[in-house]
Design a protein around this nucleic acid. Structure first.
Lengths: 239, 239
DNA sequence: TATAACTAGTTGTCTATACCAGTCAGAAAA
DNA sequence: TTTTCTGACTGGTATAGACAACTAGTTATA
């Protein structure tokens, strides 16, 4: 499992071995992984070498250490890293609210000019268009429209209904690299007012997000209309 | 400089010592810092301990290593990270607009409850209250109110008019550590409408920012009302 | 029974040492 | 003069061991 004659550093090999077990689901979230001393004995390396491997994985967010207890597999990675940026679900949970979604429509269609530009595709290319109402404690919070190029992923309604779009992205072997987001204040139009259960002309927060893969290709364009009276966008910038 | 009897880990003390030299400007960007072996000898600790300190600073983006050459101070970090978060001026410049300010009022007053809580001071404590209109290409963009505890800094009108508040902070030897920000959509009230030259009831973006020093003390509370029709808040999340 | 002390297991900190792998300048050889 | 080599520097990898700090369960004690 570990090749001491390889030019690859031992700690790196151990790192990959652990990452694989996590990615393959052998070690699930919250699982305690073997202790540093166990690793050291099994792989016949020093404990410090094991620590270097684990340290890197902790820095990358794969693992969490707890003094006196052990080292544990972190919750899913993408959700953590782009927290608040990608996931309505996580955003609401962190505020102590119960998130839910109601699918309004799901269809394949051709990209109109504005969307095509954002997704860097041709105007007549087929895309998925997903419209959802996002709820917190059963109160409508936002109206969200997502656009995804259909040549990237194979999607159907059940994917959207039960799980995260991002787990599908992962399954397809794609990795999200970064996202850009814009926020602006506006006044609700007729269409949104009804769905969000607010009066026409009420304040709304328009959030537009574009997510990019490590390949450089845009994965999605998400446009959300949040209720101004119920939603506050929070952001922390450290050091 | 390093206290071996302290309960603080040695690597942490070394970390802080290096950070200080960087923050104080003693070691500028691109400067090569002493080698790991030098540190070890000077502080009378093992090289591995020095490496742990440096590793953390590399992970935090303060330093970069180059095998065979040395370890170097990274380009300025605070400006990078907090850019667009702290400075209206920089924000506008990056959009190709010409920023300007018009001072509406500058006074010493006592903190009301809400402000006192945010600044973590007592309700009757003296604070500066600075009200400004922020302009971009001579068009009113935002109405900004800043609150700063008066025991932290000595401020007067000319400080505000000519320069940045932040250069005063620096002069006083303080270092900004992090900031939290919230954004929400609302409807303009009478008072702002006039100043921002918009109709009452137009969409506005309320931005509230709290800035904290490395000492843990809040430096300022800033409340801004941005015109919804002219301002879009942009944010990039990488990795 | 309730509390205190112990114990085995965990990660955290630290040492002293060794050798490997790039970098660069100056000495030696062509 | 130009090229090559050598040596002294840098950070990178790895070892073996020690003790501290914390956790949780067990055992001894009041």
């Amino acid at each position: 499992m570990i090749d001491k004659t390889s030019p690859m550093p031992l700690y790196f090999q151990i790192e990959e071995a652990i990452k694989q077990k996590i990615d393959k689901g052998e070690w699930e979230s919250e699982t305690m992984i073997p202790s540093e001393r166990e690793f050291a004995e099994n792989y016949e390396v020093s404990r410090m070498t094991v620590r270097q491997a684990i340290n890197n994985l902790v820095n990358d967010g794969y693992l969490t250490r707890q003094k006196g207890k052990g080292t544990f597999v972190s919750a899913k990675k993408i959700e953590q890293k782009l927290l608040g940026l990608t996931s309505f679900t996580e955003d609401m949970k962190s505020r102590g609210l119960r998130p839910a979604s109601r699918l309004i429509s799901f269809q394949k269609t051709t990209a109109e000019n504005r969307v095509a530009k954002a997704l860097e595709i041709k105007e007549d290319q087929i895309i998925y268009e997903i419209k959802r109402v996002r709820l917190a404690n059963d109160i409508p919070m936002a109206f969200e429209t997502t656009y995804v190029p259909s040549d990237l992923l194979e999607l159907n309604e059940s994917h959207i209904k039960q799980g995260s779009l991002y787990s599908e992205v992962e399954n397809a072997g794609f990795v999200i690299d970064y996202a850009t987001q814009s926020l602006e204040a506006s006044i609700s139009r007729e269409a949104e007012s009804e769905i969000l259960e607010i009066t026409k002309g009420a304040a709304v927060l328009l959030i537009k997000r574009q997510t990019y893969l490590t390949t450089g290709r845009p994965l999605e364009l998400v446009q959300s209309v949040y209720r101004g009276d119920r939603y506050k966008f929070m952001i922390d910038m450290k050091r």
